[in-house]
C-alpha cells in the first residue's frame, strides 16, 4: 500500500515538473503550449546524447541550459510576435512547432526506442518496509520537491518573483506600472522550457526515448494544469500529486476505468469550480 502511494508520488512528481513549465508560460504569455511535450522530448534526447558519452549529470545540466536557450529564442521569436493574435492561432503555431521538433529529432536520432541509463550513483534499490524500491524513483520525488520549494521561494521572496506574479495576474496593468513584461517573460519562458528539459532527463531512465514520447505525457500534464487552475503554481502541485495517486490506485482497484478516471476528475472539478482548484484568478 505504502509502496503504491510512493509510486503515485513519483508519477505525480514527474507530471508536476512538466505542468509547472506549462503554468509559467501560460501565466505570462497566455499561450497554451502544445509544443511543451516536444520540448520535454528534445530535452531528453539532448541529455541522452551527453550521458551516452558517460556524463549523466553533465547531460542534466547541458539539457537544461540548452532548453533555456531554446525557450528564450521561442519567446523572442514566436510568443512575442503572437501576443496580439487570437488564442487559437498560438495553439496552432505551437502544434506546428511540435511537429517540427518531432521531425528534427527523428532525422537526427531515428525512430527506434533508446534507453536512457540510470546514473551509477542512483542505481539499485533500497528496502522500504522490507520491499525493494528503486533509488532512482526516490530521486524523481526529490527533484520535484526541490523544484516546487525553490520555485515557491523565488516567486514569494524575490522582486522578480513579485513581478512574475503580478504579470501572471494582469500583464497590462503590470506593464503600466513600469515593468518590462517582455524581458520578464524571456526569463519565465526560458525557465519553463528549462524545466521541460529537466523533466525530460529525469523521465529518461523511466520511459524509453522516442520522438513521440512527449505526446503520451502531455495530455496528463494538461489535465494537471486544468485541474490545478490555469496559471496556479500551488494548484498544479496538488493536482499533479492527485493525478499520480489516481493513476496508481485506478490501475489497482478500478483497472477497467483507469484511463478515464483523470478525465472524470477533470470534468467533475470543472463543474464544481470552473477555474480549477486554486483558480481565484479571473
Amino acid at each position: 500500500m505504502f509502496i503504491q502511494i510512493l509510486n503515485g508520488i513519483v508519477y505525480g512528481g514527474l507530471l508536476y515538473l512538466l505542468a509547472v513549465g506549462l503554468v509559467l508560460i501560460f501565466g505570462l504569455r497566455e499561450v497554451v503550449n502544445f509544443a511543451h511535450g516536444a520540448l520535454f522530448m528534445l530535452g531528453a534526447y539532448i541529455g541522452f546524447a551527453v550521458s551516452a558519452a558517460g556524463y549523466w549529470w553533465g547531460g542534466l545540466v547541458v539539457s537544461m541550459v540548452a532548453m533555456a536557450i531554446v525557450g528564450c529564442a521561442l519567446d523572442a521569436t514566436v510568443f512575442r510576435t503572437l501576443r496580439k493574435q487570437d488564442h487559437i492561432v498560438t495553439v496552432l503555431v505551437t502544434f506546428g512547432l511540435m511537429l517540427i521538433l518531432e521531425t528534427v529529432v527523428t532525422a537526427i536520432w531515428g525512430k527506434a526506442y533508446l534507453r536512457y541509463p540510470v546514473p551509477p550513483l542512483l542505481a539499485g534499490t533500497v528496502d522500504i518496509f522490507g520491499e525493494p524500491f528503486p533509488v532512482y524513483r526516490l530521486f524523481v520525488i526529490a527533484v520535484a520537491v526541490a523544484i516546487a520549494l525553490s520555485l515557491t521561494a523565488w516567486l514569494r521572496f524575490t522582486r522578480i518573483g513579485l513581478y512574475v506574479r503580478a504579470a501572471s495576474t494582469d500583464p497590462r496593468i503590470t506593464s503600466i506600472q513600469g515593468i518590462n513584461v517582455d524581458s520578464l517573460s524571456l526569463i519565465v519562458v526560458g525557465l519553463g522550457t528549462a524545466l521541460a528539459g529537466l523533466s525530460g532527463v529525469v523521465a529518461g531512465p523511466l520511459l524509453s526515448l522516442s520522438p513521440t514520447m512527449g505526446n503520451y505525457i502531455l495530455i496528463d500534464s494538461f489535465i494537471v494544469v486544468v485541474i490545478g487552475g490555469l496559471g496556479s503554481f500551488a494548484g498544479a502541485f496538488i493536482a499533479a500529486l492527485l493525478i499520480g495517486q489516481i493513476h496508481n490506485f485506478g490501475a489497482v482497484y478500478l483497472p477497467w476505468a483507469a484511463t478515464i478516471l483523470p478525465f472524470l476528475l477533470m470534468v467533475g472539478i470543472l463543474i464544481w469550480r470552473p477555474t480549477g482548484f486554486a483558480g481565484s484568478r479571473t
Partner: peptide, 19 residues
C-alpha cells in the same frame, strides 16, 4: 491477471501487483 491500458507511461502499479 493484469491488462494495461494503451499509451501508459508508468508500469509501477502493475509491477507492484505482480510482486
Amino acid at each position: 491477471d493484469l491488462y494495461t491500458p494503451a499509451n501508459i507511461n508508468d508500469f509501477a502499479p502493475y509491477i507492484e501487483q505482480v510482486k
